[in-house]
């Protein structure tokens, strides 16, 4: 096991332990249940906005889309409009499918040396796991609105009903929670088991995986095994979002672990690779139309220089050029 894995795991376990101890001490419950979550939410939004503005300021003078298909050409050559967009409408389509279906990840290949040559093979599992992970995370996040809204809106109930479609056990099992946990486990296993991927994996890769594993794990543990007082927990969360924070009796210390790991994720988010959530919208290799051959894109900060013809240049420097033995068009 590499040091990166051990350090990330230790970091998450220590964070969880701190919150568990803090959540068991009545005086510290308001720190872990109120002030740290509030601070984390503030850091998340400010950090997010900071990163976005920093990107927005970066100049992107020229068209640099990565193209993956035939560009717009003669009328009898078929253009691949989504993979090589030439209009804003097509760019919007391309961005939409990139964000919603991870099209570029779909093209993931793995390379292997077979015999004496290298072979590339389409590899779909990362794409599938990524889809499973992101969508189950979205469903879990959305379902959590039941703790933050009163009355609970109908759309949240619909998602709950769909999510509990299989009607397994009581409290009924939500598929998204299980899928989320399994997908993170797969993404971790993939990093460890593929040597090339393991070689390039850093703490910044393992830490968020363990963090999300910890968050999902404490959530599943509270719902299906520990059984916590949901009414008390909703009292706490409603207090948070109505800015009248309070710590009810009967809140399990495991909830503080859950909350503290989420706060950690929120603080960590804007300053890590997780910012691809905002970054995907601003990727110049995806969000630009490939129209360099139709439109002239002038670098906006080019200095405003006078245009000089060769004739004028020679007129200005003729004598010096003759002196230096350079050829000139006119002798005088």
């Amino acid at each position: 096991m590499s040091l990166n894995i051990i350090m990330s795991l230790v970091a998450v376990v220590v964070l969880g332990a701190i919150a568990f101890v803090g959540g068991s001490v009545p005086g510290l419950q308001s720190v872990f249940g109120i002030w740290i979550p509030y601070a984390a939410v503030a850091v998340f939004f400010l950090g997010f906005a900071y990163r976005i503005f920093k990107w927005a300021k970066s100049p992107v003078p020229f068209r640099i889309p990565t193209t993956c298909g035939q560009q717009k050409s003669l009328s009898w050559i078929k253009q691949n409009k989504i993979d090589n967009p030439s209009s804003t409408k097509a760019v919007i389509l391309r961005m939409f499918f990139e964000i919603v279906t991870f099209r570029s990840l779909f093209r993931n290949t793995k390379s292997e040396i077979k015999g004496d040559r290298i072979s590339y093979e389409w590899e779909i599992w990362l794409w599938l796991a990524a889809l499973a992970f992101h969508y189950s995370f979205l469903a879990v996040l959305f379902r959590h609105l039941r703790f933050f809204l009163e009355p609970v809106p109908y759309c949240v109930k619909i998602v709950e009903t769909l999510d509990s479609f299989f009607q397994v056990g009581l409290p009924v099992v939500f598929a998204s929670g299980i899928v989320l946990f399994a997908a993170v486990l797969y993404l971790f296993a993939r990093r460890v088991m593929i040597p090339q991927v393991k070689y390039i994996s850093l703490i910044a890769d393992y830490f968020p995986l363990f963090l999300i594993l910890g968050i999902a794990g404490t959530g599943l543990y509270m719902r299906y095994f520990l059984r916590v007082d949901i009414v008390a927990i909703k009292t706490l969360t409603m207090g948070l979002v109505t800015l009248k924070p309070l710590i009810p009796a009967n809140v399990s210390s495991m909830l503080f672990v859950h909350l503290f790991l989420i706060s950690t994720l929120l603080v960590y988010f804007p300053f890590s690779k997780l910012m691809h959530m905002g970054g995907v919208f601003l990727s110049p290799t995806r969000n630009m139309a490939n129209n360099s051959r139709m439109k002239r894109h002038i670098n906006p900060w080019n200095p405003d220089l006078e245009f000089v013809t060769y004739e004028k240049y020679e007129n200005d420097f003729r004598e010096k050029m003759i002196e230096a033995g350079l050829p000139v068009e006119k002798e005088s």
Binding site: F45, F48, A49, L145, F148, L149, E150, P151, V231, K234, T235, M238, G239, V241, T242, L243, K244, P248, G278
Partner: peptide, 20 residues
């Protein structure tokens, strides 16, 4: 983005219903 992610803060209007 900020509007969507802060919706619990403004949808509830700062009022929590009594605990049942």
């Amino acid at each position: 983005f900020v509007l969507i992610f802060t919706c619990p803060f403004w949808i509830n209007g700062g009022k929590a219903k009594d605990v049942p």
